[in-house]
Amino acid sequence: MDLSVFHRRNKSQVNEKDIIVTSNFATQLFFSYFKELVGKEVTVELKNDLAIRGTLHSVDQYLNIKLENTRVVDQDKYPHMLSVRNCFIRGSVVRYVLLPQDGVDIDILHDATRREARGG
Protein backbone atom coordinates (compact mmCIF):
# COMPACT_ATOMS: atom_id res chain seq x y z
CA MET A 1 0.00 0.00 0.00
CA ASP A 2 1.36 3.41 -0.99
CA LEU A 3 0.91 5.61 2.05
CA SER A 4 2.47 8.61 0.32
CA VAL A 5 -0.88 9.32 -1.32
CA PHE A 6 -2.19 10.16 2.11
CA HIS A 7 0.86 12.22 3.06
CA ARG A 8 0.43 14.53 0.08
CA ARG A 9 -3.18 15.29 0.88
CA ASN A 10 -4.32 16.85 4.07
CA LYS A 11 -6.81 15.09 6.31
CA SER A 12 -9.91 16.96 5.17
CA GLN A 13 -9.31 15.83 1.62
CA VAL A 14 -9.39 12.17 2.52
CA ASN A 15 -13.02 11.73 1.76
CA GLU A 16 -15.40 9.06 2.91
CA LYS A 17 -15.27 7.23 -0.39
CA ASP A 18 -11.52 6.60 -0.02
CA ILE A 19 -12.01 5.22 3.45
CA ILE A 20 -14.68 2.80 2.30
CA VAL A 21 -12.52 1.63 -0.59
CA THR A 22 -9.58 1.13 1.77
CA SER A 23 -11.61 -0.82 4.29
CA ASN A 24 -13.07 -2.98 1.54
CA PHE A 25 -9.57 -3.89 0.51
CA ALA A 26 -8.68 -4.54 4.10
CA THR A 27 -10.17 -7.99 4.49
CA GLN A 28 -10.79 -8.80 0.85
CA LEU A 29 -8.25 -11.60 0.61
CA PHE A 30 -9.34 -13.56 3.65
CA PHE A 31 -13.02 -12.70 3.17
CA SER A 32 -12.78 -14.25 -0.31
CA TYR A 33 -10.74 -17.14 1.01
CA PHE A 34 -13.28 -18.03 3.68
CA LYS A 35 -16.12 -17.75 1.19
CA GLU A 36 -14.36 -20.47 -0.81
CA LEU A 37 -14.36 -22.68 2.29
CA VAL A 38 -18.13 -22.54 2.88
CA GLY A 39 -19.46 -26.04 3.45
CA LYS A 40 -16.15 -27.34 4.80
CA GLU A 41 -15.37 -28.43 8.36
CA VAL A 42 -13.29 -25.99 10.39
CA THR A 43 -12.33 -25.50 14.01
CA VAL A 44 -12.47 -21.96 15.33
CA GLU A 45 -10.33 -21.28 18.36
CA LEU A 46 -11.36 -18.22 20.33
CA LYS A 47 -9.34 -15.85 22.47
CA ASN A 48 -11.01 -17.33 25.56
CA ASP A 49 -9.48 -20.75 24.64
CA LEU A 50 -12.88 -22.17 23.62
CA ALA A 51 -12.59 -24.21 20.41
CA ILE A 52 -15.69 -24.81 18.32
CA ARG A 53 -15.79 -27.24 15.42
CA GLY A 54 -18.47 -27.10 12.75
CA THR A 55 -19.35 -26.67 9.10
CA LEU A 56 -18.61 -23.19 7.78
CA HIS A 57 -21.97 -21.68 6.84
CA SER A 58 -21.01 -18.11 6.02
CA VAL A 59 -18.58 -15.27 6.61
CA ASP A 60 -18.76 -11.47 6.25
CA GLN A 61 -16.29 -8.65 5.69
CA TYR A 62 -15.48 -8.44 9.42
CA LEU A 63 -14.64 -12.14 9.26
CA ASN A 64 -17.55 -12.89 11.55
CA ILE A 65 -18.22 -16.59 11.08
CA LYS A 66 -21.35 -18.70 11.20
CA LEU A 67 -20.95 -22.42 11.89
CA GLU A 68 -23.48 -25.22 11.60
CA ASN A 69 -23.57 -28.57 13.38
CA THR A 70 -21.25 -27.20 16.01
CA ARG A 71 -19.64 -29.00 18.87
CA VAL A 72 -17.23 -27.64 21.41
CA VAL A 73 -13.93 -29.51 21.17
CA ASP A 74 -13.56 -30.05 24.93
CA GLN A 75 -17.20 -30.48 26.00
CA ASP A 76 -16.40 -31.76 29.47
CA LYS A 77 -14.47 -28.63 30.29
CA TYR A 78 -16.87 -26.33 28.42
CA PRO A 79 -20.46 -27.57 28.71
CA HIS A 80 -21.69 -24.01 28.12
CA MET A 81 -22.88 -24.65 24.58
CA LEU A 82 -24.34 -28.15 24.86
CA SER A 83 -27.72 -27.10 23.46
CA VAL A 84 -26.28 -25.05 20.60
CA ARG A 85 -26.01 -26.57 17.12
CA ASN A 86 -25.61 -23.39 15.03
CA CYS A 87 -23.64 -20.38 16.08
CA PHE A 88 -22.34 -16.96 15.11
CA ILE A 89 -18.78 -16.12 16.16
CA ARG A 90 -17.68 -12.52 16.24
CA GLY A 91 -14.58 -12.06 14.09
CA SER A 92 -12.82 -10.00 16.73
CA VAL A 93 -12.68 -12.87 19.24
CA VAL A 94 -11.15 -15.39 16.84
CA ARG A 95 -7.55 -16.41 17.55
CA TYR A 96 -7.16 -19.21 14.98
CA VAL A 97 -9.16 -21.06 12.42
CA LEU A 98 -7.86 -24.59 11.87
CA LEU A 99 -8.42 -25.18 8.19
CA PRO A 100 -8.92 -28.17 5.92
CA GLN A 101 -5.88 -28.72 3.71
CA ASP A 102 -7.88 -29.41 0.59
CA GLY A 103 -9.53 -26.00 0.67
CA VAL A 104 -7.85 -23.69 -1.82
CA ASP A 105 -4.91 -24.27 -4.12
CA ILE A 106 -1.70 -22.97 -2.52
CA ASP A 107 -0.47 -21.30 -5.73
CA ILE A 108 -3.74 -19.41 -6.12
CA LEU A 109 -3.38 -18.31 -2.49
CA HIS A 110 0.18 -17.04 -3.11
CA ASP A 111 -0.91 -15.13 -6.23
CA ALA A 112 -3.88 -13.60 -4.43
CA THR A 113 -1.58 -12.53 -1.59
CA ARG A 114 0.89 -10.83 -3.99
CA ARG A 115 -1.98 -9.09 -5.72
CA GLU A 116 -3.32 -7.90 -2.37
CA ALA A 117 0.18 -6.71 -1.35
CA ARG A 118 0.40 -4.58 -4.52
CA GLY A 119 -3.13 -3.25 -4.60
CA GLY A 120 -4.08 -3.03 -0.96
Binding site: M1, T27, Q28, F30, L63, E116
Partner: peptide, 11 residues
Amino acid sequence: LHAYDQHLNMI
Protein backbone atom coordinates in the same frame (compact mmCIF):
# COMPACT_ATOMS: atom_id res chain seq x y z
CA LEU B 1 3.66 -18.51 5.13
CA HIS B 2 0.99 -19.02 2.49
CA ALA B 3 -1.01 -15.77 2.74
CA TYR B 4 -1.16 -12.51 4.66
CA ASP B 5 -2.80 -9.10 4.52
CA GLN B 6 -2.05 -5.67 5.98
CA HIS B 7 -3.65 -6.60 9.32
CA LEU B 8 -1.13 -9.46 9.51
CA ASN B 9 -3.92 -11.95 9.24
CA MET B 10 -2.06 -15.00 7.95
CA ILE B 11 -2.39 -18.52 6.69
